[in-house]
Design a binder for these strands. Structure first.
Lengths: 324, 324
DNA sequence: TTGAAAGCGCTACCAT
DNA sequence: ATGGTAGCGCTTTCAA
């Protein structure tokens, strides 16, 4: 690799001068700048970012910790983060935590050692203390950890109400809910939204809520149980799209039809939801926008630019398709 | 951040000694090692990887360039790469190229500046010359660039033949193909495999091949055209799962049924293929294994360990589900 | 067995 | 306007 020294001698100047033209900082005469630029071009010189990082104590790199990039919600998020970071001159290190505290802590350590300039995390187990002790810019996405931590989330409760009311308006008389793990804030909020709508219905009781883990198999199982217990169910609101797809499968399995016998609504608006038959009616999150916002906010922190707001609760909307 | 100096003075030794215990290299008496380790623990010292990188000229980081992480094929691949890299002490920088040469070149430059130790790329546009000029370990995945470049691909042709023959065995009399972009090697191989099976059928001619771009909308369009031109088609082999899903939708749209009227087989085995109704019969690639292999091979190169083989063509298999 | 010091490539301060 | 040089945190000779 050609270094700044090579450029300096090639151009017949000192490394200090080369550094100046590199960073457009300090006085450089037009003439010498030309010479240096030519030398750079001739040698195809690219400054060594590692050396820069060591000196500047920042690396133009951010870390992104997600539970599992294989979960269809996260690729779009990751893409948005990467796009935005790249646009602003940053690079992103991807980490999969599987939602496990040890893995998260491990990655946090590794990222700190690599001098990343900031971190975006989607986690329910990480604590405010843990984050604060890092002492670097941080954004929590899709999960609310503390009002004190910059956060991007969506209107979970509102979305859940929207979904449930929509099902009511469609004429559903018995609406069940398949929840996510209730210790996860967003799953809990979605469940609350559902309950708020049906709580006062005379038919309602807690047995209309089945528990899933945000993935398909658990939802199939939950749906099957629900339908056995309450054959009169004619509408299901699932706490995410993957589970809604599981619900569709379960309904199909016992020979009923979607939406004719049972209408189904999901949550998230992952691209998968357009690929199923019937296409899924869902509460759409602005996933790309969330990633974009998280990255740009993080980088504003990093570059110490003024940040107007540090807590975003983005809006969601109903996308009506064929499953309802 | 606490540095090696802090540890040294805390332990009452020189930085050289601390470095020795850090790397278990050179002589250190049991006694002083204990002292140093204690100091490290007390101060919760973590060596600065950037400084290490600068000296060692390697960063324990690898780059992963994919066209688009949002394409359902790549998350699983990325996960495998990340898992394997993490296990071996490496970190991965994710880059989305959209298959564009400029973006690829840009990321290649950036990754070089960051001193990544190696790069894994999925690309059709990148050239052997480009790669060779990088002078760092490199693995091409899912795309064959040159016999000279370490590569992980699958038996595309064999898989395509498998799919087409299977459709024949299922009793299909007129089997169409929806190809990917034919300038992409794997799309071309899959098309060749299909042709090899049907070429000698009396009904066959090139108009049974529709062109898609490996994504859903193009496949819907292609299928609609194909079906209009040849209403007698009773089997479709799509060059990837996303397009197969598009085909299912198109078939559904014109009121025919899958698999009763038209059987459909895809290619890839992405997790999406299990989520559709009907579930997709497909030629399954060992995606995770490919990512795993790519990462471990790359790291073997990086660490200059002996590598037995540098070109893997992994096997594929038919997974029979409901769409056929 | 340990320490002093050079040097990885770069930036920024201080001279000139 | 330009150059010399210290120093970012670490590893690795070389000497002691």
């Amino acid at each position: 690799m050609v270094s700044i020294k090579d450029v300096a001698s090639q151009a017949g100047v000192s490394v200090a001068t080369v550094s100046r033209v590199l960073n457009s900082k300090g006085y450089v005469s037009e003439d010498t700048r030309k010479k240096v630029e030519q030398a750079i071009a001739e040698l195809n010189y690219k400054p060594n970012e590692v050396a820069r990082s060591l000196f500047k104590k920042q690396s133009k790199t951010i870390g992104l910790i997600v539970p599992d990039i294989t979960n269809p919600y996260f690729p779009e998020l990751a893409r948005a983060v990467e796009d935005t970071a790249a646009k602003l001159g940053y690079t992103v290190i991807l980490c999969n935590s599987d939602g496990k505290t040890e893995k998260e802590q491990h990655y946090l350590d590794v990222l700190m050692q690599k001098y990343v300039d900031g971190i975006i995390v989607s986690s329910n187990t990480i604590s405010e203390r843990q984050i604060k002790s890092l002492q670097i810019p941080f954004v929590s996405i899709d999960r609310e950890i503390s009002k004190d931590i910059p956060t991007i989330v969506v209107e979970n409760k509102k979305g859940a109400k929207l979904a449930t009311q929509y099902l009511q308006n469609k004429g559903c008389m018995r609406i069940a809910h398949i929840s996510g793990p209730l210790n996860v804030v967003n799953a809990n909020e979605r469940c609350e939204g559902y309950k708020e709508v049906v709580r006062n219905e005379q038919w309602f009781n807690e047995s209309y809520i089945g528990n899933g883990h945000f993935e398909m198999d658990s939802a199939i199982e939950a749906t099957l149980e629900l339908l056995q217990l309450h054959p009169e169910i004619d509408g299901i609101f699932a706490a995410n799209d993957t589970m809604a797809i599981g619900a569709i499968k379960a309904v199909h399995k016992i020979g009923k039809r979607t939406p004719d016998d049972i209408a189904i609504v999901g949550f998230d608006g992952i691209s998968l939801s357009k690929a199923t038959t019937p296409e899924l009616t869902t509460i759409e999150q602005p996933i790309y926008e969330m990633g974009e916002k998280a990255a740009s906010m993080l980088i504003e922190f990093i570059e110490e630019k003024p940040v107007e707001k540090t807590f975003y609760r983005l809006d969601v909307g109903l996308v009506e398709r064929e499953s309802s």
